[in-house]
Simulated assay, not measured.
Amino acid sequence: MALEIEKIVNKHESALKKYRGLYILADLLATFMVLYALFVLLNMRDIFLMFPTFEPYTGAKYGILGFEIVFETLGLIIIDFVLSLILTAIRYFRAEKKDAIALMEEKYPVLKERMRTAYDNRDTDNIIVRDLIGSVIIDSKPVKSSVFLNRKKLVKDVLLTVFAVACLAYVAYTGYQTTFSPTEMSGIIEDLPFSGSDSDLVSVEENGGTSADKQDNNELFGEPAVIVVEGKEVDLKIPPGAGQGFTSQEDANKTGESFIQSDMYNPEAIASQSYYENLPEGYRSVIQSYFEQLAEE
């Protein structure tokens, strides 16, 4: 009897797995068709025009199974299929999964608690367990695997698929197109606050700098600084192309400036009075006269 009850449970469990696979396929097909219909109505094929990478391929046609498919349509189908897989997988893993025993007890109240108890104790050999398993086997004979099929779910997926196909057929027959296009999103993004159009914000320049750097450079190379040397105004403005403003030692050695050597001393030079501070009081005049005689020679 233990083998017989295992056979009953395994048969319904196998049918339940087939039904779950059917649900997944129906969900995947319905999701794919609905998304594709939305993509077509919203002109999502234009999204490939927004990326320079796809520009060489736009408008190209590929032969698949005897049909010529435009690159934009093929790319849209691939994107739609990937999104449909992701959404279907999320729904499948989040859905509550009941085993065959739980569904049998739910559909047939006469087996409630008795079916699971008999299956869990199928390896126990006593008169009570044998009597329980025997009665459960008899009560489970009317159970059909078809009662586990969720027809409402399948009908909903079929209706969604038919509706999406009808929308696509209408668009193909009438050539209807909405006024929306993904290319309009770039203009909308530019109009958003803090999108970079504000002059107070720092923007990245093409050469890697920023608008803040440009503002600092304008201050550096703007109005020239002027100082007065011996009654003449000297312009200290650094021209933009002048480099760092310093000359290396190697470049300095290559320059051919000529210098005029001055005299050994300047007769008009006046000795500094600062050295007097460190001379002894009684020897200042003697030391001063000594150095003055040396200067005259």
Rank of each mutant, 00 (worst) to 15 (best):
I138T: 10
L111N: 03
K152F: 12
G134K: 14
K112D: 01
I101C: 03
N150V: 10
S140A: 14
D139F: 02
V147H: 08
I133F: 02
K152C: 12
V143G: 05
L132N: 04
A95G: 07
I133S: 01
I101R: 01
V136R: 01
E106N: 11
R122T: 06
P109R: 12
S135D: 12
K141T: 01
D125Q: 12
T88E: 07
A95T: 06
K153G: 14
N126K: 11
I133E: 03
R151C: 14
I90R: 10
M115L: 06
A118V: 01
I127S: 15
T88N: 07
I133W: 00
T117L: 08
K153N: 15
D139K: 04
D125V: 15
S146M: 08
I128E: 15
V129R: 10
A118T: 02
K112H: 06
F148Y: 09
K141S: 03
M104F: 00
S145K: 04
D99W: 01
R122H: 09
N150W: 09
V129C: 09
R116Y: 01
V129G: 11
L154Q: 10
R91T: 06
P142I: 05
D125E: 13
A118E: 00
I90V: 14
D125K: 13
V143D: 02
K107L: 10
T124D: 12
R116L: 03
K144Y: 04
P109Y: 08
A118F: 01
D131E: 12
V110G: 15
R91P: 02
V136C: 01
V129S: 08
I90H: 07
Y119W: 06
K153D: 12
M115N: 00
R151P: 10
E113H: 03
R116G: 02
T124Y: 09
K152M: 15
L154N: 10
R130K: 13
Y92S: 09
T124S: 13
Y108C: 05
L154S: 07
I133D: 02
K141M: 05
F148K: 03
D125P: 05
D123C: 12
K152Y: 15
S140F: 00
R114M: 03
D131L: 15
S140G: 04
T117E: 08
V136N: 01
F148H: 05
R122Y: 04
N150Y: 13
R91K: 11
S135V: 10
I101P: 00
A118G: 03
D131G: 13
K112T: 02
R114I: 00
R151F: 15
L154R: 06
S140Y: 00
E106R: 10
A95F: 05
R91S: 08
A102Q: 10
E96N: 14
N126Q: 11
F148A: 08
D99M: 02
D131V: 10
M104Q: 02
S135P: 08
D99V: 00
R130A: 12
S145N: 04
